[in-house]
């Protein structure tokens, strides 16, 4: 199931570059609610705590698999909505 994250292109992107907590996880949670099952959300951020702590805990709590790609100074945090 997690392979989908690697192969499939994201269906929606959330750009929260320059923002710090609690904005990234809150916006991501809001956006995920509107998305359909099987879709991928890509969160663009440069906020390390969001990548290390808050976004992973959001995913763990919802039970969604995620993948982190480093792109220069940015992180692309991909979340697969599975339920």
């Amino acid at each position: 199931m997690e392979d989908v994250l690697k192969i499939k292109e994201p269906d929606d992107t959330l750009d929260v570059v320059g923002e710090s907590c609690p904005v990234p996880e809150m916006m991501a949670s809001k956006k995920l609610k509107k998305m359909k099952i099987g879709q991928i959300l890509e969160v663009l951020t440069d906020h390390q705590p969001a990548v290390d702590v808050t976004l992973p805990s959001l995913c763990k709590n919802l039970g969604y698999p995620y993948m982190i790609l480093k792109d220069g100074d940015l992180f692309r945090f991909r979340i697969l909505k599975v339920r």
């Binding site: 997690e2 709590n61 919802l62 698999p65 995620y66 790609l69 480093k70």
Partner: peptide
Amino acid sequence: RWGKSLGGSTPGLPGIRALGSP
């Protein structure tokens, strides 16, 4: 709860991380 919601996978490592991430 994290462990349970992911079907018993190891807590702390549920997501897959791509190479190059810190």
